[in-house]
Amino acid sequence: MSSERSAEIRDALRRGLAVAVSAGPFAVLFGAVAVDNGLTIAEATLMSAIVYAGASQLVGVELFNHNVAPWLIILSIFAVNFRHVLYSAAIARHIRHFTLGQKLAGFFLLIDPLFAEAERRGESGVRVSFVWYMTLGISVYLPWLLLTVLGGVLGNLIGDPRAIGIDVLLPIYFMGLVLGFRSRANFLPVVFASGVGSVAALHFVGSPWHVSLGALAGITVAALLPTDGGEAEEPVGLPVKGEA
């Protein structure tokens, strides 16, 4: 194994660990909530294994319990996951060199942090290799499965996630990812528009549409603002981004 390759794998594992730590509690939570809502541990694990999208899994099992029409459950899960359409469009430029089979496998694992890490790596001029991508992806996928089973076994023992403070981990983790893009052109206007847009949409339209609508607000602002001289328009007052 070349040293370049092993450096790639080490980098991916290191990043995968951070993702697994922050997302892990939610896998446990999902397993517990799923069993609480009448799924068997096997069904909960199947859902983690083939849907593999935490927020939508929680929305799904919540609806299973409410006698909601199946098509409406699927539509809700689709709506929660709609942001991935944007991810796979944005990431295209970095993974064009994947073979079709590699793309089929790679897109299956395309979760928020993997997208953000791949986007950042590609943007910084480093080639997003299939080995790096899959190492990072699988190092999050396997813990997600194991912790789902654990949550299912623990069942109601966890109780309220607020009591042990794990409910703050995911928003903070996502905020860390947002900050990683703060040197991009029009970062502040985009974040401002998305933030205001998502809160307004949450209020007037409701969840989960606030994600897509809020994102649309930020993306529209980025499309409308002047694109030339992005460097010169760097917002003032922000520290220069160091190499992570």
């Binding site: 953000a116 986007e119 893009f181 985009v190 974040v191 994102a215 930020g218």
Partner: peptide, 11 residues
Amino acid sequence: AVPAAVLTTLV
């Protein structure tokens, strides 16, 4: 702008 725009709506 996709990463910052989408992830912000989760925060």
